[in-house]
Amino acid sequence: MRKKKILVACGTAIATSTVVARKISELLAAKGYSVNIDQCRSAEVPGKLHGVDLIVTTTQAPLNGTGAIPVIQTISFLTGVGMEADIEKIISFIKE
């Protein structure tokens, strides 16, 4: 089975999305899911979509050109509030 790919987007792609990518990876691993995670700025999303199954973004800025790829907008992985519900949501998109 091909590993699913999650693209994590934020404003600068240096701090916020780094933390979110690490959290998602760890929480999914704890539940037995292994995924590929890439991170980028919100503005770079259109050029980073190849092979992407799900986008997680921390900003409210509208993302362009995402087409049929599902997008989850959340800051739960930073605040800790609602994190478990969001992981379940992510799993619902990435499981076969």
Binding site: G11, A61, T79, V81
Partner: peptide, 13 residues
Amino acid sequence: DRERKYPSALPME
């Protein structure tokens, strides 16, 4: 500028 475009406050619990 970044704060104007992407606000940085986090509503923790």
